[in-house]
Nucleic acid binder design. Structure first.
Length: 639
RNA sequence: GCUGGUGUAGCUCAGCUGGUAGAGCAGCUCACUCGUAAUGAGCAGGUCUGGGGUUCGAGUCCCCACACCAGCUCCA
C-alpha cells in the first residue's frame, strides 16, 4: 500500500498508509485531538473518522469545541430526526435537513400534518434510536447508483439531477440514508442533548410557487447544560415579547376594530415615543440635517414618475378623489425630491440633507404581520442626502457616525454590517452607470474602513437602484435585528431629473443617498421593548418617578413632592390611593416605574423621601432635592 | 399570499364523550389607615370572533369568513 501525504493548516505534514481510517491520521497529531474529533476534511471534502483514506491533501480536523463542531452535531441530529420520521411515518418524502443558527430543521412531504403529539413521539423515538450507538457512515456512489437508491424520493432525485454526473456522498445512520456532503459525528452516542421545538410550513427551495413542505425545527448541543441554557433563553425571549409587554405596560397595541398591522400608541407609549422623536430630531439638526414634513397622500402622477405605480402597486393603498387616482405614500423619497427640486442647486450649496419621521403605509402580506415588528403603517426615520460625487465618502462616513451615536445611546454597540453590491454577472438589470456603481461602492468601503467596521460583502444582494450598507444591531440577549441602512439611488435622480450645477457650470445628476438609522420607529420601539425587557431607562420611561404615600396623613406631602419634581421637568405621578404601601409598591414595580419615592411620617417630617429603585428594593431615605438632581442627571446622560 | 395551529369577561385561563357558561386578577361598593412586590367582604361583568349548517338542543360537531400565533415568502 502506498502512503498518502497530508498537510495540516499550520503547514506541518504527515503521512498515512492508504486504506487506513482517517482516525489514524488524527491520532498521529495527538490522542487528545482524536478524543475531541468528529470528522475530517481533506481538500474540502468531508470524511468520517472510520472511513478508509483514499487520497492525501490539505487536512483539517473538525472537533467538538472547534469551528463547525456544534453545526456538525446539529446536522447529525437532523438526520436522526429524519430517521425517526422514516421509521414512524413510512412513505414520507425527504427534502433538506441542514443545521441553522440556533439548531436545525428537516423538511418533509407527507399528506397528513404533523401534530404536537407527533413531535413528542418522534422525539421519543429519536432517543431510543440514538441510545444504540449507531454508526454514521459515509460512502460514495455514482449518480446512477444514487438515482436507484433514492428512486422513491423525488426531492432527492431533483437534487441529484442538479448535481450532474459525478461521485456523490451519502451518509447512513441505521436504516436511514441521506444524500449529504457531511460532515457528521461518528455515531449516535453524541446525540443526547436535543429537543424538537416546532413544526411549520416551508416552501420547497423557498419558492412560493413550489410545494409547501412541513418543517420540523429542533436544536441540539453536546451538553445537557447548554441545551437547558438555550431553552431558558427561549423562555426569556418569550417573556420579553413586545406584544405582551406593550399590553401589560399600557404602551401600544394593535386594535382589531381598526384593522391588522395598524398600531395604536396609548398615552404611556406616546410619551416614550416622543422621547425618541425629540432626541432623534435634536441629533439630526446638530449633524446638519433639515427636518421636513411631506403629505401622507399625493396624486398618483408622482408615483408614476418614481416607478412605484408600475413596480410596487400591489403594496400601495390607491384610491380616487375628484376622479383622480391618489396614493397613500409608501415611501418619503419622492416628496423629498420635490423639496430638493424647488430650487436650482449648485455644488456650493450641497450637500442638502433632508430628514423626516415620515409615516408611510404599505399593504404587507397579511401572514407577514407581527406585532410592531411588521406593520402596514409605520414611521420611517428617513433621510435623503443630495450631494456631489466628491462629497460621497464624507457623507457616508458621517452617516455611519450617526448610526453609531444613535444606536449607541440605546445600548447597542455591537453590530453586524453587510455591504450589498451588484451581481457582476447581471449588470444590465441595475440602474446607473458602471462609474457610478464603482464610485459609490468605493465610498462605502472607504467609510467602513475608516470606522474599522468589520463587514461582509454580499454580491448580488444590492437592490436594482444602488449599492447599500445594512447594519444589524445585536440586542441584550444576542439576537440580531435589521435597523440602519445606507443606500445609494441612481434611479430616482434620473426619473425625476434631479441635478446640480458643477463648478464648470455643467448640469449633472446629483448623487442621492437614502438612509435610515432606526428603520421604523414602531419596529425600533418593539426591539427596544424586548432589549430592555420593558425596563426602559429613566430618560425613556413614560413615568420616571412615582411618589407613594404610606397612609392618609402623607397624601399632601406626597402631592407636594410630586409637584416639586414635575416642576423640575420630570415625569412623575403621585399614588395617594388609600391602599397598603406593599400593594402600591407592587403596582409601581409591575408597571416598571424606574424610581419610587415612598413617603411616610418620618419622611414628611424631615423633607425626605425613601428611595426605591425598580427591582432593587429599598435604598434608604434622602432629601427630595438631592433625589431630583440625581434623576435629572440620569436623564441628561441618557442612562 | 401559502402550510399548520388557536380564538370563552379588560387580562390569564377552566369548561369530559353536544344538555343551555366558570375561576383568579383588573373594575365598582363597603370596611380597614396601613412602612418597602398583592387587606378582607360583597357586587357587577360574556350575541363563547362573525356568519351559515347538522341537531329536540351547539362554547363543544361541520362549512365559510375574519383575527391572532409558529414558520415560509417578502421586507423596514
Amino acid at each position: 500500500m502506498s502512503d498518502l501525504n497530508l498537510t495540516l493548516p499550520d503547514g506541518q505534514t504527515l503521512t498515512l498508509e492508504a486504506g487506513r481510517p482517517w482516525a489514524d491520521a488524527v491520532r498521529q497529531i495527538g490522542e487528545g485531538l482524536l478524543r475531541n474529533a468528529l470528522a475530517v476534511t481533506v481538500d474540502g471534502v468531508n470524511h468520517s473518522l472510520a472511513e478508509p483514506a483514499r487520497a492525501g491533501g490539505q487536512l483539517t480536523v473538525i472537533t467538538r469545541s472547534g469551528k463547525g463542531g456544534v453545526e456538525t452535531l446539529r446536522h447529525s441530529t437532523a438526520h436522526l430526526l429524519a430517521w425517526a420520521v422514516q421509521d414512524l411515518f413510512p412513505g414520507t418524502k425527504f427534502a433538506f435537513g441542514p443545521d441553522i443558527e440556533n439548531g436545525f430543521y428537516y423538511d418533509f412531504d407527507r399528506p397528513e400534518a404533523f401534530s404536537e403529539d407527533d413531535l413528542a413521539r418522534i422525539e421519543a423515538r429519536m432517543r431510543e434510536m440514538a441510545g444504540g450507538k449507531v454508526a454514521i457512515e459515509r460512502a460514495e456512489v455514482g449518480s446512477a447508483e444514487a438515482r436507484e437508491l433514492f428512486k422513491d424520493q423525488p426531492y432527492k432525485l431533483e437534487q441529484i439531477d442538479e448535481l450532474g454526473d459525478r461521485q456523490l456522498s451519502i451518509y447512513r445512520m441505521g436504516a436511514f440514508t441521506d444524500l449529504c456532503e457531511g460532515p457528521h459525528v461518528p455515531d449516535t452516542t453524541e446525540l443526547k442533548a436535543f429537543k424538537l421545538l416546532t413544526v411549520a410550513g416551508a416552501y420547497w427551495r423557498g419558492d412560493a410557487k413550489r410545494p409547501m413542505l412541513q418543517r420540523i425545527y429542533g436544536t441540539s448541543f453536546f451538553k445537557k447544560k447548554e441545551l437547558d441554557d438555550h431553552l431558558v433563553m427561549l423562555e426569556e425571549a418569550k417573556k420579553r415579547d413586545h406584544r405582551k409587554l406593550g399590553r401589560e405596560l399600557d404602551l401600544f397595541g394593535i386594535m382589531e376594530e381598526a384593522g391588522p398591522g395598524l398600531s395604536f400608541w396609548f398615552p404611556r407609549g406616546d410619551l416614550l415615543r416622543e422621547q425618541i422623536i425629540d432626541y432623534w430630531k435634536a441629533v439630526h439638526r446638530r449633524c446638519g440635517y433639515q427636518t421636513v414634513t411631506t403629505p401622507h397622500i399625493s396624486q398618483a402622477g408622482l408615483w408614476e414618475t418614481s416607478g412605484h405605480m408600475e413596480f410596487y402597486k400591489e403594496n400601495m393603498y390607491v384610491f380616487e378623489q375628484d376622479d383622480r387616482p391618489y396614493v397613500v405614500k409608501p415611501m418619503n423619497c419622492p416628496g423629498h425630491i420635490l423639496m430638493y427640486k424647488r430650487k436650482t442647486r449648485g455644488y456650493r450649496n450641497l450637500p442638502v440633507r433632508l430628514a423626516e419621521l415620515g409615516t408611510v403605509y404599505r399593504a404587507e402580506l397579511k401572514g407577514a404581520l407581527h406585532g410592531l415588528m411588521r406593520v402596514r403603517g409605520f414611521t420611517q426615520d428617513d433621510g435623503h442626502i443630495f450631494c456631489t460625487p466628491d462629497q460621497l465618502e464624507d457623507e457616508v462616513s458621517n452617516t455611519i457616525d450617526l448610526v453609531k451615536e444613535i444606536l449607541g445611546t440605546f445600548g447597542f454597540n455591537d453590530f453586524k454590517v453587510e455591504l450589498s453590491v451588484r451581481d457582476p454577472l447581471n449588470k444590465e438589470k441595475y440602474a446607473g452607470t458602471d462609474e457610478e456603481w464603482d464610485a459609490a461602492e468605493r465610498s462605502l468601503v472607504k467609510a467602513l474602513e475608516k470606522h474599522s467596521l468589520a463587514y461582509t460583502r454580499e454580491e448580488g444582494e444590492a437592490v436594482f437602484y444602488g449599492p447599500k450598507i445594512d447594519v444589524k444591531l445585536i440586542d441584550a440577549i444576542g439576537r440580531r435585528w435589521q435597523a440602519s441602512t445606507i443606500q445609494f439611488d441612481f434611479n430616482l435622480p434620473r426619473r425625476f431629473d434631479v441635478r446640480f450645477t458643477d463648478h464648470e457650470g455643467q448640469e449633472q445628476y446629483v448623487y442621492m443617498v437614502h438612509r435610515a438609522i432606526m428603520g421604523s420607529l414602531e419596529r425600533f420601539i418593539g426591539i427596544l421593548t424586548e432589549h430592555y425587557a420593558g425596563d426602559f431607562p429613566v430618560w425613556l420611561a413614560p413615568e420616571q418617578v412615582r411618589v407613594l404615600s404610606v397612609s392618609r396623613d402623607q397624601h399632601e406631602y406626597a402631592e407636594a413632592t410630586a409637584n416639586l419634581l414635575r416642576e423640575k421637568g420630570l415625569r412623575v405621578e403621585a399614588d395617594v390611593r388609600e391602599e397598603k404601601i406593599g400593594f402600591k409598591i407592587r403596582e409601581a414595580e409591575v408597571m416598571r416605574v424606574p424610581w419610587m419615592l415612598i413617603v411616610g411620617g418620618r419622611e414628611a417630617e424631615t423633607g425626605q423621601a425613601s428611595v426605591r429603585v425598580r427591582h432593587k428594593g429599598d435604598l434608604g431615605s434622602r432629601p427630595v432635592a438631592e433625589v431630583a438632581d440625581e434623576l435629572l442627571d440620569l436623564v441628561r446622560k441618557r442612562q
